[in-house]
Amino acid sequence: MDRRDSLKSLLVGSVAGGLLVTGCAPGSENAEVPEVASNDLPGYGRTEKEKEHDRKVLAQEFLNEHELETIAVLVDIILPSNADFGSASDAGVVDFIDFIVKDMPNNQLPIRGGIAWLDSHSNKLHNKVFKDLTLEEQKAICDTIAYPGKTAPELMAGERFFTRMRNLTMTGYFTSEMGIKDLGYQGNRPGVWDGVPADVLAEHDVDYEPEWLAKCVDQSKRMNIAEWDEEGNLLN
C-alpha cells in the first residue's frame, strides 16, 4: 500500500482496494475521480455542504510522490520517535499534511516552493536532492534554517519553509491519537469536576477561599432536581 493509499484508508476506514485513487502525476488534481460518493469520511457531525467539500478535497491530489517522500523525511527529523512514542510520520503527520495543503490552499505554493528550494539548496551543497542525503547532511542543512534570528539572509526562504513545516508537524502530531497520549491530556470524557486535586493545590501558592467553596456545587447532589424558596435560595 503506498502512502496515498494509506491516506485513503486512514480517512475512509475500510475501503475496497479497487476504489482507491492511485494516480500521482503532478497536476492530476484535474484527473477524473469517479468514486467520490464512496469516499465519505466516517461521520463527524458534518452538514451536507461540508460532506460535499470533504469529498471534493479527498478526490483531489496536490503533492506528488517526491514531495510526500521529502515531507516524510523532514517531519521525522523535526519529531523523531523516542523510547515511548513513535515519530511524526508514525502518527500520520504525512497524511495530515497531504490533506491540509488541499484543504487550505494557501499552503500549496509555500510548501511546493519550499521543497523545491530545499532540493535546490541541497543540490548546490551535495549534488543530491534533500531526501537522498545522509541524515547528518540533512540535519546540517536544518541547523542553518531551524533557528529564527540566526539564519543567514540568503537562507530566509528556507527558514520560513522550515517554520511552516515545524508548525504543521507539531500540530499534526499533537492532534493525533498518539500525540494526545504523549501529551497526557486527560479530558474529553464524561466526568465530575470537583476542584483542583489537593496534591496539586499544595504545590501552588493559591488556595480555595472557604467562603467561595461554600457557594460551590455539592457533587453528591448533582442528580437531585433543584428547588428554591421564593427568594431564590437553593433548598437542596
Binding site: I78, Y147, P148, G149, N167, D182, G187
Partner: peptide
C-alpha cells in the same frame, strides 16, 4: 484538548525563560 494550531511555535516562550527558540528533534516534545 488540542486541536489544529496546538503546537505551533512550540517553544516561543523560551524567549521568556531563556532557552533556544525553533530547532527540531525530541526536545520539541
Amino acid at each position: 484538548m488540542p486541536s489544529y494550531g496546538f503546537g505551533f511555535n512550540p517553544n516561543d516562550l523560551n524567549k521568556v525563560t531563556g532557552g533556544a527558540v525553533g530547532g527540531y528533534g525530541d526536545s520539541l516534545r
